[in-house]
Amino acid sequence: MESHVTHKQRLWLYILTALILLFLVVPTLIVVPMSFSSANSLAFPPPGWSLRWYQNFFEQDKWLTAALVSLRTAFGTMIVATTVGTAAAYSLHVGKFALRGTIYATLAAPLAIPAILLAIGLFFVYASAGLLNTTAGLIIAHTLVAIPFVLITMTAGFKSYDMSQEMVARSLGANRLTAFLTVTLPQVKFSLISAALLAFIVSFDEVVVSVFVSGGDVSTLTKVMFQTLRDDIDPTIAAVSTLMLVIATVPPLVLQLAANRKRES
């Protein structure tokens, strides 16, 4: 959108925006230099550089175990949530049955409901089902949280795809599954990758539900971080934060760039 006001007249607005964007970015990225500090205190800028906090992280069982639990859970959630979420999105997009709207709303609801409510509900169900502090329990719980993201992403993907291509494949003798896997899926693969990535990150970053349903040897990284932060602000957490930042932001950024390039070509 262009307009009749010159950029010079708008300078104050640009400066204001730049400051607000700095407010958003700087505190997000400040954990990176902090994690390489040589000091015990959390002085900034750091008086010197070292890898001691990373060493701390990799040498302590508490952190390493939790990181492995988180990665395992995130991979599991990615697979389960992407599968059931994509199946649901496909069924609701293609099917013409009654209750479609209700089912969609139900599946999207975990996104709107406060995490604390999901957490105490899960805590209760898991307490009676013996699923507390288990990896399987964590994966299912995170799948609940991730389903809306997969559903919304895949529904958008299916909407931008011409379903009659699948009909053509089926009329030429492919069964529904073959038609879906060989014709539809390759064309919505971008949505599928986004959905899987979202499911992974949603699980990896999830705190509230994890605090309630994980514990002991299967505590997630976020739970251990939360508990540690309640007591003190150990600089090891800066190293953990940097690792989390890299895991959660690099893949989506690469994907975004790939998408932009694809759109331009």
Partner: peptide, 12 residues
Amino acid sequence: VPFWTSLLVRTY
């Protein structure tokens, strides 16, 4: 970038 970053990291 902040949107994709864990809320726990930013709170810290």
